[in-house]
Design a protein around this nucleic acid. Sequence first.
RNA 1: GGAGAGGUGGCAGAGUGGUUUAAUGCAGCCGUCUUGAAAACGGCCGUGGCGCAAGUCACCGGGAGUUCGAAUCUCCCCCUCUCCGCCA
Length: 424
Amino acid sequence: MLSLQYIRENVERVKRDVLLRNTTAPIDRILQLDEDRRGLLQQVEALRAKRNTVSKAIGQSKDAADREIRVAEMRLVGDEIDRLDGRLKKVETELQEKLYEVPNILDPNVPKGPDETSNRVVEVVGELPHFPFAPRPHWEIGEIVGGLDIERGAKMSGSRFYTLRGALARLQRALIQLMLNEHGRAGFTEAYLPYMLNEASLYAAGQLPKFRDNLYRDAEEDYFFIPTAEVAFVNLYRDEIIPAGELPMRFVAHTPCFRREKMSAGRDVRGIKRGHQFEKVEMFVYCEPEQSAAELDLLVAQARSIPAILGLPYRLVELCSGDVGFNATRTFDLEIWAPGQGEWLEVSSASNCLDFQARRANIRYRSGGAQPTRNPHMLNASGLALPRTVIAVMENYQREDGSIAIPEVLQAYMGMDLIPAVTR
RNA sequence: GGAGAGGUGGCAGAGUGGUUUAAUGCAGCCGUCUUGAAAACGGCCGUGGCGCAAGUCACCGGGAGUUCGAAUCUCCCCCUCUCCGCCA
């Protein structure tokens, strides 16, 4: 959420960025409501001040007749306050709703463009592998080595669910451990978080009301399943004032993520690339505004360290204005090459959200001394999404017989250096 | 799930309808004193909205109500603690 004051003082910038995002937002309506609100507020407060003063006098008055007159008078004032207050509440409710519809401002460095075709490839790292045979997609490899069971996942739960067994399940866990250890070593505090959050938390993180369609929820209780650990991290300090001297705070957590993926029914149905439930390691940073640009660089560096040590070819992509998410001012995606499927797989998205989420979640910090409280900047980055990393390892390290070589850094975690082809 | 007790500023803790503009203590900040520190003394010390300003309004877990006036009374909800039950 942007502050009203910022919108008021930067109308042209805000409108321009909304256009660059190829979307719409009710800026003019917001300005009108803001003006209405301030007018009503001043009237209501003047009446309240009057009532407070007179009511105090009534309490002290000894003259019964005089009291009667003033009480009657204040009853009328009270009615007028109720009337104006009702109008004020309506205005404030609509203003809040409309403010929720305004996306974050864009960083000036963001490339301009209407959709993902304008995204900028910043860097390609590593050689795309050349195989002396036709590389297989991971669902075929999974069948050869055994352990990837899509049918039973569908039987138990439905489409877009799968099970892993044996070495493949172990491969996923090894990758999680590796990621947590790498980020932990870089100073990120490991966190264990709830996987279900209440409705207020989903609003604070911006998932509601806009993305209700993509969330799973408990039908009877106030629990929503997290679509990403980011939602939990945003709420970690909701409605709090962080004491001076604690920023930056850097966290990492492994959680499952749950997404209905209703929008994309029919897409990416093969294999494990897009499921309703998947594991992810997520990094999150709370920092002072002056630090957030550097923190974004740090998050990108952390995320890309993972494909680097796994020896997986990847590329860094900066999202263009039309593709940057609602909350973010600037976003870098990390994509790993999957030679079997022949496509780049998005395994991480690193975003600087400035104070946009902090304002909505009512998070402030003290900068020390007599300074007023400020909203911290908040950033998030996957580090990384597991299924697609598993796919990348399977497809990049596959051998002609369908077995999978284990990258050297993973061998200790796995206790093996090869997932053999199973004779069937 | 049942019974009971609670929820007030950074912390502790008063306050059951009107000098509460939330007492008091601790912690914190500034100053006096001191070579320095401690002690003592004096002052400051919550968050947010509106306003050029003076100032004003709101907030005592959340919401709704009663009243001229609510931290205080009523109703609903949430959370914490203790005991019981159930369970990993």
